[in-house]
């Protein structure tokens, strides 16, 4: 098991390294001079200033050298100078062009908001979706089942941002049910934290739960037709236990895979939800950095962190697998 995890971590490291190279290539070898936006930020950009910044950022060196310097910064920190000299401590992801803060510090500052949103939202869609899907499979073919499937299709065919905006307008602004919808750090108290996030959790969770309901239902219907379900019934196991224990245990496996990846995507930033519900997380941060003048170090950091999260999520899902399904138990 340990060997397996080490192997997986090594290959994950490779993936992340490759991603970082691609990100580096995309942004630092792009058509524009990467120093251009930095030069644009403070008013007039003269050719002399641009030349100076280009030299200061080391953009005249070879690409390999630049990547090496950047990589070094990740592990031991480095000095960055454009105008003043900034000390960027490890793990250094650069200095934000717009705020002149260390990117790593900003990332750590934004991450709790996104994490809070992701945990609540995904818990709701996992639990609600799996429960509804299981119930629908249990009564499959009946009116209740068809109603549930139809409802789920209707909800999921409405664009998510429409749902979110409507929820925000009516539930937050108009009816004031959730007037104070925003992110409060946990240090403000768990009540404020949960209450501020409740509406985005519900919107995110319920909208996404329809997909999980349909997926779970499909898996359940298939599993309920398995021989071992008939065996369980034949030995006298109660129907509820057959469904929620014997069948769900097997049906949930592919759902977990999807869930792991979905959760990773949420962690990498949920732009729409964060924008609409005023949650200052990774998604908003990344979008803001993309607006001209582009904040290259921040954009690079969001892409990199996204890659890291997804790779880690995959490893966790695979390890979870081996706990759920003994046949894939690894040595």
């Amino acid at each position: 098991m340990l060997g397996y995890i080490v192997r997986r971590l090594l290959s994950a490291g490779l993936v992340v390294t490759l991603t970082s190279m691609i990100v580096f290539a995309l942004f630092f070898l792009g058509p524009d001079n990467p120093a251009q936006p930095l030069c644009d930020i403070n008013g007039k950009c003269t050719p002399e200033r641009l030349a100076l910044l280009t030299e200061q950022l080391g953009l005249n060196d070879t690409v390999y050298h630049q990547y090496w310097i950047w990589l070094q910064g990740l592990f031991v920190g480095r000095e960055i100078s454009f105008g003043p000299i900034y000390q960027c401590s490890a793990p250094c992801l650069g200095i934000s062009y717009s705020t002149r803060n260390e990117v790593t510090a900003e990332l750590l500052d934004k991450f709790p908001a996104t994490l809070s949103l992701a945990i609540g939202g995904s818990l709701i869609y996992l639990l609600v979706g799996v429960f509804l899907g299981t119930m629908a499979a249990r009564v499959r073919g009946t009116l209740a089942d068809r109603g549930l499937v139809t409802m789920s299709l209707i909800v999921s065919s409405i664009p998510y941002y429409v749902l979110a905006i409507l929820a925000w307008i009516y539930l937050s602004l108009e009816w004031q049910i959730f007037p104070d919808t925003t992110y409060h750090p946990l240090t403000d108290g768990i009540g404020a934290w949960a209450y501020g996030l409740l509406l985005p959790w519900l919107v995110l969770g319920l909208a996404q739960s329809t997909a999980y309901a349909r997926y779970t239902r499909g898996q359940m219907v298939e599993t309920l037709g398995e021989d071992y379900i008939r065996t369980a019934t034949a030995k006298g196991v109660a129907k509820r236990k057959v469904i929620f224990q014997h069948a769900l245990r097997a049906a949930i496996v592919p759902v977990i895979t999807i869930f792991g990846l979905d959760f990773a995507f949420l962690l990498a930033g949920t732009v729409v939800t964060e924008e609409i519900f005023d949650i200052d997380g990774i998604g908003q941060w990344g979008i803001r950095a993309l607006r001209a003048p582009v904040d290259f170090p921040v954009v690079a950091a969001t892409v990199l962190i996204g890659a890291v999260i997804i790779v880690i999520a995959n490893i966790i899902v695979d390890i979870l697998y081996s706990f759920i399904d003994p046949r894939v138990r690894v040595s």
């Binding site: 398995e226 021989d227 071992y228 065996t231 014997h246 245990r249 097997a250 759920i324 399904d325 003994p326």
Partner: peptide, 8 residues
């Protein structure tokens, strides 16, 4: 197929 694959 008649025995549950996930239970001992």
């Amino acid at each position: 197929t008649a025995l549950h694959p996930f239970y001992s």
